[in-house]
Design a protein around this nucleic acid. Structure first.
Length: 421
DNA sequence: CGACGGGACGC
DNA sequence: CGACGGGACGC
């Protein structure tokens, strides 16, 4: 997810920070040195590139100047656009360059560069916001996003500057607590790369975290009927040469690849990490079903890294999202259940050939090992019972570690999914 | 006993 | 109209 595959290694900094590169339309006679002479005063130039014909080496009359900061690029644009340079009487054009991967060469409008989006204390009025941001330049207006019914602030605001460089200065220099970013234009017709990226990562997130429209965490935390469902899911599952690997802690692509590659016939392994939790999963494919069966046999329940049980399951082609989710949930339970129920004394890899699914057949319903006074069993709530979306948890005497919390809630999420999907 | 992370606009 | 090169760290 980090690597910009498809880009040149050095292409990464061209768009970093965003909008720090300008695109010039100039006379063909204008040289790199002449550009440098005129544009250095606006900031730290990292790169100048005059585009030339590959064969004749003649300038095509266009150039790129990369600055260290967006505010510098913006100011160069504001100051130099429309001026005449060199021997030409034709005014030059200076625009913020499109990001390199972009296919559309539609000009970036000032409209898109002058409005920022910030998080503010709920007590702020529009005047408060303005007084915080006018130090970066004249503010055209501020608008706070409010609840339409109550009129109370949502703690979010837009600030429109007159100049792109001022908006950029605000983003670069305002207090970090504002979390200032460039606002997406209101009327967004077509898709941009950055938007696609965000929406796809959101999709991933919602797949993992928000499938149920109602209660995610049922009260029946000691309901072991889920285990039967796991067994059913196992029996139904068809083998395939494609596998998913799920993990509570982040999988590292290279490491996982090395692990899976111990089984001959690995074709690919693609880690898909959830951006907002430590959970991750990977899609894996072997050349043959035999390889996949063997990989699953060897690696399902395997502790990697130590203390974290991997879940491995067959991934059938054409399964829909719900099916995949269910499968991942059951795989997660299967890989976690052993250590959860019996505690840390059973943490070795499952003995070869003894059946990695042994936990399902065991008397899991017996008792949990705890010295805490547990509340009485609660009746199972119905599917459409009203529910709250947030829990406020008070620890006594000490807070639980994040690890433990994740275990508990992952576990109950999995149980819920298995029971209701 | 005991409270925070979060993010999108009436075009 | 006017949109994408050059060149290589240091495990």
């Amino acid at each position: 997810m980090e690597d910009n595959s498809g880009f040149r290694p050095s292409a990464g900094n061209l768009d970093d920070p965003p909008n720090s590169r300008i695109f010039l339309v100039v006379s063909k006679s204008l040289t790199e040195d002449m550009i440098r002479d005129r544009f250095a005063e606006f900031g730290d130039i990292q790169d100048i590139w005059v585009v030339k014909d590959r064969h004749t080496k003649e300038s095509k009359g266009i150039a790129f100047v990369k600055y260290a900061k967006s505010s510098q690029a913006c100011r160069a644009m504001e100051e130099m656009h429309g001026r005449c340079l060199g021997d030409s009487s034709k005014p030059i054009k200076v625009l913020i360059a499109q990001s390199r991967g972009s296919t559309s060469h539609k000009e970036v409008e000032d409209e898109d560069l002058t409005r920022i989006f910030v998080m503010i204390p709920k007590s702020y009025t529009e005047d408060d916001v303005k007084s915080k941001f006018k130090e970066y330049g004249p503010v055209e207006y501020c608008s706070i996003i409010k609840n339409k019914n109550t009129g109370e602030s949502k703690g979010l605001a837009f600030v429109r500057f007159e100049r792109p460089s001022h908006a950029a200065l605000a983003i670069e220099n305002c207090d970090r607590s504002f979390k200032a970013i460039l606002a997406e234009p209101r009327n967004k017709g077509s898709t941009s790369e950055s938007l696609d990226y965000h929406s796809s990562s959101r999709q991933q997130e919602s797949m993992i975290h928000e499938p149920p429209a109602m209660s995610m965490y049922s009260y029946e935390q000691y309901d072991y009927s889920a285990y039967d469902k796991v067994g059913e899911a196992r029996n139904q599952e068809g083998v395939s040469k494609r596998l998913t690997v799920v993990s509570r802690v982040p999988l590292v692509q290279d490491q996982l690849y090395s692990l899976l590659d111990l089984i001959p016939g690995l074709e690919f392994c693609e880690v898909q990490r959830d951006l907002y939790s430590s959970f991750s999963h990977a899609v894996v494919q072997y050349q043959s079903i035999a390889s996949a069966i063997y990989a699953k046999f060897k690696l399902h329940g395997f502790e990697y890294p130590p203390g974290n049980r991997l879940g491995v399951t067959y991934l059938n082609y054409g399964g829909d999202g719900a099916e995949l989710l269910k499968k991942m949930a059951s795989t997660m339970v299967a890989s976690q259940v052993n250590s959860m129920v019996w505690g840390p004394q059973v943490t070795q890899q499952f003995p070869p050939g003894s059946g990695y699914d042994r936990p399902y057949a065991s008397p899991v319903g017996a008792q949990l090992q705890t010295d805490a006074a547990l509340p009485a069993y609660k009746k199972k709530s119905s599917m459409d019972a009203p529910c709250k979306e947030r829990l406020f948890i008070v620890f006594n005497p000490h807070p639980l570690s994040l690890d433990v919390m994740e275990d508990v809630f992952w576990y109950s999420t999995c149980c819920w999914l298995l029971a209701h999907l």
